[in-house]
Amino acid sequence: MESLLVSTGIVALAEIGDKTQLLAFILAAKFRRPLPICLGILAATIANHAFAGAVGAWLTRMITPETLRWILGISFLAMAAWTLIPDKFDEKDAKFARFGVFGTTLLAFFLAEMGDKTQVATVALAARYHAFYTVVAGTTLGMMIANVPAVLLGDRVAERMPVALVHRIAAGIFAVLGVATLMGVGEAFGF
């Protein structure tokens, strides 16, 4: 249960102000069809995060626990720093209009998530918790929590969201996970 809750919370917070959330705002303004946009985000996120979770699970089998602990701890600390850097959105991320609303959203989100902090976080969380399904479910839920309101409420949400504060909170959570992992917290409990 911890892996689901941590994965959901950390990705939901990290996604605020992220380029994919900005993409959600743009797609909502362009197409004004929330259901296919939300379904496209869901499908892209499941595909992307399932791949990332599989990489995380694979890492746990390929690397010794001690080495993995150091890699994950440092990765979480790097994610904390990365979360504090504001994302910029490139209009070319939304260029697939010929594929319809769902197809455009699916392709744009999938490509925008490649190498993004939430994908990297999914790899690290899956490796940390050894819980592929709950981590992927949690990170996907976190993406939906952050992006569905962006699609449905658009600018009304963006204007009121304290993005810098949310990023600092997410960075703090990543930092705590990093330090706890480096210190070996949780190893006695099998995670």
Rank of each mutant, 00 (worst) to 15 (best):
R168V: 12
M143T: 10
D90V: 08
V135M: 08
D90C: 07
T67S: 14
A188E: 13
L72H: 07
Y129S: 05
A80H: 01
V101P: 03
W82R: 13
A24T: 04
H167C: 08
L42G: 10
V157C: 00
L72D: 02
A43K: 04
K92R: 12
G184W: 12
M62Q: 15
D87W: 12
P36W: 14
A24M: 11
S75N: 08
L107K: 15
R33I: 04
I16Q: 06
L35P: 00
I71G: 03
I173P: 02
L152C: 06
L182R: 04
A180I: 11
H130S: 12
V136L: 07
A170Q: 01
I46F: 10
I145S: 01
G17S: 04
R61T: 14
G73I: 02
V101Q: 02
R98M: 09
L165I: 14
R61A: 15
T140K: 07
N48Y: 14
V135T: 14
G9L: 15
E159F: 13
L59I: 05
L107T: 13
W82T: 10
A137L: 14
T64Y: 10
S75D: 02
T20P: 01
V101S: 04
V166G: 00
L68G: 03
P86A: 07
L22D: 01
G138S: 09
T64G: 15
V55D: 07
A14P: 02
V123E: 05
F25Y: 15
A175F: 13
